Amino acid sequence: CAFTHRPCSHPRLEGQEFCIKHILEDKNAPFKQCSYISTKNGKRCPNAAPKPEKKDGVSFCAEH
């Protein structure tokens, strides 16, 4: 993984420079932040999710 703030030993995603944990660092990657919002604390999930086809579409990470 090419994350520069600290060493990361996670494997890169195929065709990308970053792992799934750090892929949002790459603005050109086909990922965006997960659209899930917790009902308990109102916070948005920080994980990466595939970018949807539509610009305003929602997309969820593997956990959600």
Results as ranks from 00 to 15, higher is better:
Cys1Tyr: 00
Cys1Val: 00
Cys1Lys: 07
Cys1Ala: 03
Cys1Glu: 03
Cys1Gly: 01
Ala2Tyr: 04
Ala2Glu: 01
Phe3Gly: 07
Phe3Asp: 04
Phe3Val: 03
Phe3Tyr: 07
Phe3Lys: 04
Thr4Asp: 07
Thr4His: 09
Thr4Ala: 02
Thr4Val: 02
Thr4Asn: 05
His5Gly: 15
His5Asp: 09
His5Trp: 06
Arg6Ile: 14
Arg6Tyr: 12
Arg6Ala: 07
Arg6Lys: 14
Pro7Val: 10
Pro7Lys: 09
Pro7Ala: 12
Pro7Asn: 05
Cys8Met: 00
Cys8Gly: 01
Cys8Arg: 00
Cys8Thr: 00
Cys8Tyr: 00
Cys8Ser: 00
Cys8Ala: 00
Cys8Val: 00
Ser9Glu: 06
Ser9Tyr: 12
Ser9Leu: 09
Ser9Lys: 03
His10Pro: 00
His10Ile: 15
His10Arg: 12
His10Trp: 09
Pro11Ile: 04
Pro11Val: 05
Pro11Ala: 14
Pro11Gln: 14
Pro11Cys: 04
Pro11Gly: 08
Arg12Cys: 11
Arg12Pro: 07
Arg12Tyr: 00
Arg12His: 03
Arg12Lys: 03
Arg12Asn: 04
Arg12Ile: 04
Arg12Glu: 01
Leu13Thr: 03
Leu13Asn: 01
Glu14His: 04
Glu14Lys: 04
Glu14Val: 10
Gly15Gln: 08
Gly15Cys: 02
Gly15Val: 00
Gly15Glu: 05
Gly15Arg: 04
Gln16Arg: 11
Gln16Thr: 07
Gln16His: 05
Gln16Trp: 05
Glu17Trp: 04
Glu17Thr: 13
Phe18Asn: 01
Phe18Arg: 03
Phe18Leu: 08
Phe18Cys: 03
Phe18His: 02
Cys19Asp: 00
Cys19His: 00
Cys19Pro: 00
Cys19Gln: 00
Ile20Ser: 08
Ile20Tyr: 07
Ile20Thr: 05
Lys21Arg: 13
Lys21Leu: 09
Lys21Met: 07
Lys21Val: 09
Lys21Gln: 09
Lys21Tyr: 04
His22Gln: 02
His22Thr: 00
His22Val: 00
His22Asn: 00
His22Ser: 01
His22Pro: 00
His22Tyr: 00
Ile23Ser: 07
Ile23Pro: 01
Ile23Met: 05
Ile23Asn: 02
Ile23Phe: 02
Ile23Ala: 11
Leu24Trp: 06
Leu24Ile: 05
Leu24His: 05
Leu24Pro: 08
Leu24Asp: 08
Glu25Cys: 05
Glu25Ser: 10
Glu25Trp: 08
Asp26Trp: 03
Asp26Phe: 04
Lys27Gly: 06
Lys27Glu: 11
Lys27Cys: 06
Lys27Ser: 11
Lys27His: 11
Lys27Pro: 11
Asn28Ser: 15
Asn28Glu: 12
Asn28Phe: 11
Asn28Gly: 10
Asn28Leu: 11
Ala29Ser: 13
Ala29Cys: 07
Ala29Val: 05
Ala29Gln: 04
Ala29Asn: 05
Ala29Lys: 06
Pro30Trp: 01
Pro30Arg: 05
Pro30Cys: 04
Pro30Lys: 07
Pro30Leu: 06
Phe31Ser: 06
Phe31Arg: 05
Lys32Phe: 03
Lys32Asp: 08
Lys32Val: 08
Lys32Tyr: 06
Lys32Asn: 12
Lys32Pro: 05
Gln33Ala: 15
Gln33His: 02
Gln33Met: 12
Gln33Thr: 15
Gln33Ser: 06
Gln33Asn: 10
Gln33Phe: 05
Cys34Trp: 01
Cys34Ser: 03
Cys34Val: 01
Cys34Thr: 01
Cys34Asp: 03
Cys34Phe: 01
Ser35Lys: 13
Ser35Gln: 10
Ser35Pro: 06
Ser35Ile: 06
Ser35Thr: 10
Ser35Leu: 08
Ser35Phe: 15
Tyr36Ser: 13
Tyr36His: 15
Tyr36Val: 09
Tyr36Leu: 07
Tyr36Ile: 08
Tyr36Thr: 13
Ile37Cys: 14
Ile37Phe: 15
Ile37Asn: 13
Ile37Gln: 14
Ile37Lys: 10
Ile37Gly: 14
Ser38Glu: 13
Thr39Gly: 12
Thr39Asp: 10
Lys40Leu: 15
Asn41Ser: 13
Asn41Glu: 15
Asn41Tyr: 03
Asn41Asp: 08
Gly42Lys: 15
Gly42Asp: 11
Gly42Arg: 14
Gly42Phe: 05
Gly42Gln: 15
Gly42Trp: 04
Lys43Thr: 14
Lys43Tyr: 13
Lys43Trp: 08
Arg44Gln: 15
Arg44Asn: 15
Arg44Pro: 12
Arg44Met: 14
Arg44His: 13
Cys45Phe: 01
Cys45Ala: 02
Cys45Ser: 03
Cys45Tyr: 01
Cys45Gly: 02
Pro46Tyr: 10
Pro46Phe: 07
Pro46Met: 10
Pro46Thr: 13
Asn47Asp: 15
Asn47Tyr: 08
Asn47Gly: 11
Asn47Lys: 12
Asn47Ala: 15
Asn47Phe: 15
Ala48Asn: 04
Ala48Pro: 11
Ala48Leu: 07
Ala48Gly: 09
Ala48Phe: 05
Ala49Val: 15
Ala49Phe: 09
Ala49Gly: 12
Ala49Asn: 08
Ala49Met: 05
Pro50Phe: 08
Pro50Thr: 15
Pro50Gln: 04
Pro50Tyr: 04
Pro50Trp: 04
Pro50Val: 05
Lys51Asp: 13
Lys51Phe: 05
Lys51Ile: 14
Lys51Val: 14
Lys51Arg: 11
Lys51Ser: 10
Pro52Asp: 11
Pro52Ala: 12
Pro52Glu: 12
Asp56Met: 02
Asp56Phe: 08
Asp56Val: 10
Asp56Tyr: 07
Asp56Gln: 12
Val58Cys: 15
Val58Gly: 08
Val58Asn: 06
Val58Ser: 11
Ser59Ala: 13
Ser59Cys: 11
Ser59Met: 11
Ser59Trp: 15
Ser59His: 07
Phe60Ser: 03
Cys61Pro: 02
Cys61Gly: 02
Cys61Lys: 02
Cys61Thr: 03
Cys61Trp: 01
Cys61Gln: 02
Ala62Leu: 11
Ala62Met: 10
Ala62Gly: 11
Ala62Ser: 13
Glu63Met: 07
Glu63Asp: 15
Glu63Gln: 06
Glu63His: 15
Glu63Phe: 10
Glu63Pro: 06
Glu63Thr: 13
Glu63Cys: 10
His64Pro: 02
His64Arg: 02
His64Thr: 03
His64Asn: 02
His64Leu: 01
His64Trp: 00
His64Gln: 02
